[in-house]
């Protein structure tokens, strides 16, 4: 790397850079610790007995998991987990299927008005779901689908951003293999299913995880359509019981942590895909 002639200068530069980098690391660590305080404080509170929570100290005299068992017993947490898991998985699966199929047509086939179709779909990115809650509510009321999981899942499926991501990814894939397969008489569906989709696993993972997380976290729309306690998702359930704990702060924090655990697990498992997915496309809920 370093040319011997400039070795001395490089050394000086390296020393200066090293100092600068050390300062950078110090500031960064301070911020990261600051960012962790709310989460650590929530955990700290949750493992205290309720009576101890009013003394503001990180020290815990009698650590206990009682708040967690109480919360699991007294709330419908398991039912909320189930509901969130069902709607988020189905939304992710459905979006991946319909969006990747549409993107495959847009990327690989020749047909009239292709650009019109592409731009018409892309325009959908401009329409935030939040401005559609009023017509959606009437529509799902007319369809008799209020208080069903369909009301949460269906509006998530036509995600224009997902089509865009898949199309970008498909466009970047080499075509030799599929052209050979087409020559051998493979149908488009076979090419899509057996060649393109397996190659597009990073895009599939990014879209699936993104839709899963956004559906899991969505509050406004599920709040409107899931008034039946048996169907409530985690955010809706937490929102409806948040006042019920009163001054039982350990229980309140235990419910928050229990509500967070599934997504923290998803995050730890798929950290790389989540981060790359966001970096690659600028997805935002």
């Amino acid at each position: 790397m370093a040319n011997p002639d400039v070795g001395i200068t490089m050394e000086r530069i390296n020393a200066r850079e090293k100092l600068f980098n050390r300062i950078c690391a110090g500031v960064l660590i301070a911020f990261a610790l600051l960012w962790l305080v709310p989460l650590l404080w929530a955990v700290d509170t949750a493992i205290k007995p309720n009576a101890e929570t009013t003394r503001t100290t990180w020290l815990i005299d009698n650590p206990t998991l009682d708040a967690f068992t109480r919360t699991l017993r007294d709330t419908d947490m398991w039912s909320w987990y189930g509901a969130s898991f069902i709607v988020s998985s189905l939304a992710a699966l459905g979006t991946v299927i319909v969006a990747s199929m549409a993107a495959f047509a847009l990327s690989r086939m020749r047909f009239r008005y292709k650009n019109v179709v592409f731009w018409a779909i892309l325009a959908g990115i401009m329409i935030p779901g939040q401005v559609l809650i009023v017509p959606w509510f009437r529509e799902f009321d007319a369809l008799r689908l209020l208080n069903t999981y369909w009301a949460v899942i269906l509006p998530q499926l036509p995600a224009a951003i997902a089509v865009f991501i898949f199309k970008q990814f498909f466009d970047g894939l080499p075509r030799d293999l599929e052209e050979a397969a087409r020559m051998d008489g493979a149908s488009f569906f076979r090419v899509y299913r057996r060649i393109v989709l397996p190659l597009a696993r990073p895009a599939v993972a990014a879209v699936a995880i993104f839709i899963f997380v956004t559906t899991w976290n969505d509050l406004l729309w599920p709040l409107l359509v899931l008034s039946n306690p048996d169907l409530m998702t985690v955010p809706v359930g937490l929102a409806t019981v948040q006042g019920a704990f009163g001054i039982r702060y350990a229980d309140t924090m235990a419910s928050a942590i229990l509500g967070a655990i599934p997504l923290v697990a998803v995050f730890l498992l798929f950290q790389r895909q989540i981060v790359q997915g966001i970096a690659g496309s600028g997805l935002k809920g």
Binding site: L36, P38, W41, A42, N217, L219, V236, M253, V264
Partner: peptide, 17 residues
């Protein structure tokens, strides 16, 4: 982890904390 983990939490969890 420190900066990004909060982002994936549901708003209801963030609000409680």
């Amino acid at each position: 982890l420190a900066f990004f983990a909060p982002y994936i939490l549901p708003s209801a969890v963030v609000a409680l904390i």
